[in-house]
């Protein structure tokens, strides 16, 4: 059964326990950062930062809104990274989230470009050219051992919860209608986006205000490559090979005949 993380932005206090929990469990080193006039840091996801919280002050607001949003892998069902990954290193875990097998990651980095949320990051040595993709792994080992993902476990307010995706959708919908009843322009993000994300968001404003893409989609080029071009390639090679085989048989038969005819 598919699992999901539900992030309820209306309950998040941006304590960032999740951000450190992610580093703690996954042994990710700290980055050197500077303050650029915001509480938000590191500035972006990286091979060492798989999860970060965004602090958003709407520029036209009255100073009475401070939005916090989670930025990490969305674990899409229609996942650009899975689709584009040439080696199968990035794949859908049987519980629905996007896992990856580092061992067979070739470091091509196509997933970085195929992700509609700009999540995967490459890390490598400039000397050897070796590279690996890094991103949130949904704490696959914890999940397999009936532990919650590290970020979810550490969340004090229940802004992050984890469970069966269907249940998470139900809870999120209940929360949205509760908030709507209180006059909040709440919405659920991730239920249908990309055939369903495995990280669902309850938002109190439009996704845009949380810097989330409004209609995320996997680039048509990914589909073109994986679903059309590759098939075409196999077909073309098959057809050519077949043609040549046929030619060989026919030509050879003919030559035998010629010889006999002589």
């Amino acid at each position: 059964m598919a699992k999901a993380i539900l992030f309820d932005s209306t309950k998040c206090t941006a304590c960032r326990g999740c951000q450190v929990a992610c580093k703690q469990w996954n042994n990710l080193e700290a980055e050197e950062t500077v303050n650029t006039g915001t509480y938000e840091n590191p500035p972006d996801l990286s091979s060492r930062t798989w999860l970060k919280m965004r602090f958003i002050e709407p520029p036209d607001g009255d100073g009475k809104v401070w939005l916090f949003s989670r930025r990490a892998c969305m674990h899409c069902t229609e996942a650009g990274c899975v689709k584009v990954c040439p080696t199968g290193a990035v794949y859908h875990h049987e519980e629905g989230f996007v896992a990856y097998n580092k061992d067979i990651c070739s470091g091509c980095g196509y997933c970085v470009d195929a992700c509609p949320f700009d999540v995967p990051r490459m890390v490598g040595s400039t000397l050897t050219g070796k590279k690996k993709m890094e991103k949130c792994v949904f704490c696959a080992d914890r999940v397999a051992n009936e532990e919650k993902p590290a970020c979810v476990k550490t969340c004090p307010t229940g802004a992050l919860i984890y469970g069966e995706r269907t249940e998470m959708v139900d809870l999120a919908e209940q929360r949205v209608s509760k908030l709507a009843a209180d006059g909040v322009d709440a919405q659920l993000y991730g239920k249908d986006e990309l055939d369903g994300l495995h990280v669902l968001y309850v938002l109190a404003h439009s996704p845009k205000d949380y810097k989330l893409p409004v209609n995320p989609e996997v680039s048509p080029s990914v589909t073109l490559w994986q679903d059309i071009l590759k098939v075409m390639g196999y077909a073309a090679v098959g057809a050519v090979a077949g043609g040549l085989l046929l030619n060989y048989m026919v030509a050879r038969a003919r030559m035998v005949k010629e010889k006999e005819g002589k």
Partner: peptide, 21 residues
Amino acid sequence: FLWVPAFGSLAEDSYSRIIHR
């Protein structure tokens, strides 16, 4: 190796990328 997932494991550790280059 980057076309055929079945060969994916051969691309391990970027060796194929380096050779390709």
